[in-house]
Design a protein around this nucleic acid. Structure first.
Lengths: 184, 184, 184, 184
DNA sequence: TATGAATGAGATTTCATTCAT
DNA sequence: CATGAATGAAATCTCATTCAT
């Protein structure tokens, strides 16, 4: 039932936007009474949070899985693969991405997202710190943060703004950006 | 009076967030009657739009002015100066930046912002296209877009997330990112 | 509940007039919350329409019933009976009649009323057309329209203006008017 | 200036309907400030009343003038001439007639109109009372009221409803109705 | 006299949430 | 557990009217 409500909520969000995301509307879409919704979610914010979390976890998993496949690959190839995986994950439901980025009041979800970003950044920091000499990096934590943020935001904007850049070219450029940054 | 209402609106936005941004609340803050607000703004969306536009124009002006001062400087110095100016402009009212980025329904304001980004990107494209040999850039438009987006988003996130990176270090890193990207 | 709201609405209309007919006022009179009203009526106009329709159908039914009882009676007697029934129906709630005729924005309800008038006029047309020789009528449709309109409006005005004419006398006069019109 | 405001008000009423008849709108149409309106009219109701009065007086005058021309004519001819004149007067501005009859809150203007009707009815009563033997009328006051009301309402409805009856035919029918009523 | 900016009460409508069944 | 009718606070917006200039 929780799943049913989440599906309904996601559907409403993607199809009609956040303005139409009312508890009554979601319950109706789920074929359930509005009262029932409150048996599984404390309030409207809770269901929004759950939807975002699910979607965000999904992207997380996909990118992690893609990376696991490429583990140990060369630097540039790994960067490109990561960017590719992230882009692919975001492209899966652009409508939802747009709603999440541009309509939702994400004040409340920012902490959770920030935590994820921190985790990734820590991994990247470790990676950078452990390869002395292969990069000109002197502040691994700062560089890792810059890389993660740049990559994430570029991917998001590429999907949402659809600039006139071929997907492959975009990945090449992003790879160049990162590689050029690390290069000694 | 328009100014008074905009000031009041900005104040409410910064102090109380968008949820508290009701037409009555703004009028009260401005010390005028709710009816008066509607003599100067067609509806609630219009005053929000005006506030954002004013703030966005302000940032635009500041960055443009800073750049004008540094015209003709060396590549890395100019990049750093631009990033510095942008960061400074965003740091002027972080609360407003946060509300604009995380609470406002920016679907409506995105087009205007996108237009500004396009303008800057076009300038950058021209700049890159005109310096053959000095960079390894082969797709000026794509590279310009990547640079503009990366710089903008990094600055925004730096202000909002306050990562544990010194301001000077951050500027150095961003400069390295851009310079490394362009470097032959 | 619909009935409760309609009753309350009618009451407000009769007691306080259309100016006091606000959705909040009607809900209060019905002893329910303003929100409940909107579960049963799409908007304020809808509840007004429902009240008028109910009242108008009621009059319609009463006149039709009275006529059914007198079917086959002589011409003058039938005319008088019809006028009597219509008058009685209108006299049932003169306050409502006044509000409907003089305060409501009937632009919206006129079409429905006009349709009813057309139906009655058509019946009358058929009746007149089928009695060759017994009347001097040469344009049944025109005469039917004139009769229906005259009768309806005279009854309404008699109730609303309360001219110093005894009810019985009024019915006699109206009967004379109609009979004299048809008489060869 | 009063005239200017009345013209503006009539124009707004005819062109945009009573919903658009706001004091601000009327002042704007008159090219005057809203404040000025209140120098000549106590409130919104007063200007509506003045417009109606002017228009009603105008119709009154026209009908009276037409009748003065036909004074002393035969019974049926005079009835037809009266109906013709009234119809012509109403047809002069059907839009205004519609607004007055169907949109205005005429509660307040009814008394004045009723007074006019009474005056006409009194004249007609005298006319009927003074012609013993030529009619079968036994209650001059009642008959006069019936005639006046029937004629007025039929003319109004003819203009507003535009039934499929030729103007000449309509006048013939109305004449027949009245003449048949009076006929011994 | 004319102005017109300012007023502010109040109307319609929405929707997150509850609770008796 | 599920229901869904009922709630009612609150938000946006209008417009007749005023009054200092």
């Amino acid at each position: 039932m929780v799943e049913r409500l989440l599906d309904a909520g996601r559907e409403v969000l993607q199809r009609d936007g956040y303005d139409s995301f009312t508890t009554n509307r979601v319950a109706e879409e789920a074929g359930v009474s509005p009262g029932s919704l409150y048996q599984y979610f404390a309030n409207k914010a809770a269901i929004v949070a759950a939807i975002i979390e699910q979607w965000s976890d999904d992207i997380d998993d996909k990118v992690a899985a893609a990376l696991a496949d490429r583990l140990g690959e060369e630097g540039p190839a790994m960067v490109r693969a990561t960017a590719d995986a992230l882009l692919a994950a975001l492209e899966e439901s652009p409508a939802l991405l747009r709603v999440v980025m541009e309509e939702l009041p994400h004040r409340q979800h920012r902490p959770r997202h920030a935590a994820l970003e921190r985790r990734v950044t820590d991994l990247m920091t470790a990676y950078l710190a452990v390869r002395p000499g292969t990069t000109r990096i002197t502040r691994p934590a700062a560089s890792a943060w810059v890389l993660v943020m740049a990559l994430e935001n570029l991917a998001v904007r590429y999907v949402l703004d659809q600039p006139p850049i071929a997907r492959e070219d975009f990945l090449d450029e992003v790879t160049d950006l990162c590689v050029g940054y690390l290069q000694p």
